[in-house]
């Protein structure tokens, strides 16, 4: 689904992303972990076409991201950490808007997503102004908006920030279902325990890959009890307490 080779992004003399090579398959949940400034958001922005790579190659479904940006944009859904919804629009109007800019007929799209709306408990709040919704609802609505055009590839940039543990677990249940339907999920997160939901993760530091693999294998390999410990270990941060 996604293939990158020697991916580099430079801002002036600062290398935000340095030689990242990835091969991500269909139906995979792939996680980006790292501190702020480690390069994960920059990488995700390049993969989603928001930023142009300085050098290296990104191919999505065997299409070059720079040359075929228009075609690729139809294939991807994007949910940002700010849950980009218009607060003064009703929930349904937000969905309508995103269907509109992807040029998909709204009614069929809504019909297709009905089970998801039901599962998320969103059906009853469609006519509520988005600003009046609790954080957890905004997050789920934002995911539904990103799925209006049924993209095979979904980017989630810190999708659970500000959402409580209960809602987080339910959210991940849905992400799992989506992957099971064959959608590829790319996710970045601050919560190390969430890395456990991913099939594979990459841990980044200073723009480089410091670890890549299945969470269970990585934990065994580095002799860590949990992801937090593993994370700090591979980054070389010493703290026994966490």
């Amino acid at each position: 689904m996604i293939h990158t080779s020697h991916l580099v992004k430079q801002f002036g003399s600062f290398k935000a992303v340095d030689e990242i090579n990835l091969e991500i398959g269909r139906g995979e949940i792939f996680g980006f972990l790292g501190a702020n400034g480690a390069g994960k958001t920059t990488t995700i922005r390049m993969l989603s076409g928001l930023l142009k790579p300085s050098s290296g190659e990104i191919r999505i479904d065997d299409l070059d991201i720079v040359r075929h940006s228009e075609q690729i944009k139809h294939k991807l859904g994007y949910m940002s950490q700010k849950f980009s919804l218009y607060p003064d629009l009703k929930a349904v109007e937000n969905l309508q808007f995103y269907a509109g800019i992807y040029r998909v007929p709204f009614e069929p799209a809504l019909k297709r997503l009905e089970p998801l709306l039901e599962q998320f408990g969103l059906s009853s709040i469609l006519n509520t102004l988005t600003q009046d919704l609790p954080m957890g609802y905004k997050q789920r609505l934002s995911l539904v908006a990103a799925l209006m055009h049924d993209p095979p590839l979904v980017f989630l940039d810190e999708p659970t920030s500000g959402v409580d543990p209960q809602a987080r677990r339910e959210f991940w249940q849905v992400i799992n279902d989506l992957a099971n339907l064959g959608k590829t999920i790319i996710v970045s997160t601050h919560f190390m325990d969430e890395a456990e939901y991913c099939h594979r993760v990459i841990i980044m530091q200073d723009g480089r890959e410091v670890a890549l693999g299945n969470p269970a294998e990585l934990k065994t390999k580095h002799g860590s009890a949990n992801m937090q410990e593993l994370f700090l270990k591979v980054l070389g941060v010493s703290d026994a307490k966490l």
Partner: peptide, 13 residues
């Protein structure tokens, strides 16, 4: 400011 522009820009608009 709200970040919605980012969301629009990933679409083919």
């Amino acid at each position: 400011e709200m970040g919605t522009m980012e969301q629009i820009l990933v679409s083919p608009v």
